[in-house]
Amino acid sequence: MKICLISFDHWQYDAHIVDTLLKKGIDAYHINIGKYQHPTKLSRLKNTLSKIFLGINPKLELRQKFIISELKKRGFQDQILVINPELIDREYHLKIKSYTKRYIAYLYDSLARHPIDNLMEGVFDDIYSFDKDDIKSCHFKEANNYIYLDYVRHEDQHPNFDVCYLASFDKRISTMNRIAKKLEQLKKSYQFIIVGKKTWIKQLTKIGDNKSSVKYQIKRVEHAEILNYYLNAKVILDLVRDNQSGLSFRIFEAMALEKKIITDNEKIKYYDFYNPNNILVLNSEYIAIPKDFFETKYQKVPKDIYDKYTLDKWVESVFEI
């Protein structure tokens, strides 16, 4: 069987899907749109000038042509999966579809954040989503994010911080600051890493933030570093983006590392692994963080439930293998 994955692999999660397929003996290949580079310096210069003076980014078109050129090299595929299909124009989706028996999509984001109205009909054989609201309203197939990390017992870890939070620079900053103040009142240590191009503003001002515990940086956190940050904390903080109800990767990273979770995602209560001993769902004021949540021991997720959320099971379900 030949399977191709097409994605803009922002956080390097998608490569794990291909690795899992390869371990199953499947001929799998990843077309990572994010790694596309201009072939020459002149091409890069033309692209820059076009963005500045015409407001047009030719690289967006070139990336899509790159996908087709890669498929021509690889040949016909049994299945092709596109993650976050809104990054590709409909006409190119139809070209991609001609290279496979089964063309499917997985939505990492909610439709409220990234709509795909022009792709809902006549493009995909199946659309999978992690957002329960979208699944219900659009009749998508459900596929949660997955456990990709190796399992590590909490007994084998020696964290230095009570809470860790890794996230992009966005509206969640204000919520994060309120939680930080509460943690300080409880005398709990924390390490918050915020990433984004606009973080230079915070680097200059540091207004309202604990300088030693909140770090703003432009450079993206390398995928391999995520594990080290989380291993060094007892609890992982999870704050949901606006208009999103699906579970983030933080939830599944926490499960793999046997970490407790503090989250503002009410939907987590409807999952079979939900345990109030391990998962604290914040109220609307973000102040109800009981001290004893940090003092009780982590209760292991039953193996049969844990296994349902592994990448191995995800691959079997989405690709129907």
Rank of each mutant, 00 (worst) to 15 (best):
I67Q: 08
Q37W: 00
H30G: 08
K72Y: 03
D27N: 04
Q77R: 11
K46P: 07
I31M: 07
D78S: 15
I56C: 10
K72G: 10
I68Q: 03
G25R: 11
N47K: 02
N32C: 11
I67R: 01
I31L: 08
L60R: 00
R74K: 15
L45R: 04
G34S: 03
Y29N: 15
D27S: 13
I52L: 12
K35A: 14
S43P: 03
N47S: 14
Q64L: 01
A28F: 04
T40C: 06
Q37T: 04
T48S: 12
Y29L: 07
P58Q: 00
I31V: 12
G34M: 08
N32H: 03
K65V: 05
K51S: 07
L62Q: 05
S43E: 13
I33N: 04
T40H: 02
L45Y: 11
K65A: 07
G75R: 08
L54E: 15
P39M: 01
Q37A: 08
Q37G: 02
K24C: 05
L49M: 13
G25W: 11
A28I: 01
Q77G: 10
Y36K: 03
P58S: 00
P58L: 00
K35L: 10
Y36M: 02
I68F: 02
K72A: 15
T48H: 08
G55L: 06
T40V: 11
G34P: 06
K73F: 02
L71E: 05
G55N: 08
G55V: 04
R44Q: 13
I26R: 06
Q64T: 10
K46E: 14
H30Y: 07
Q64D: 02
E61R: 09
K35P: 08
P58C: 09
N47Q: 13
I26E: 00
Y29P: 13
N47L: 02
R74E: 14
K65G: 11
S69G: 10
K24D: 08
T48P: 08
R63E: 15
E70T: 05
D27W: 03
E70C: 04
K72W: 00
R44D: 14
P58W: 04
Y29E: 10
H30V: 03
I26A: 06
L60G: 00
R44I: 01
S50D: 05
K51Y: 01
S69T: 06
I26S: 04
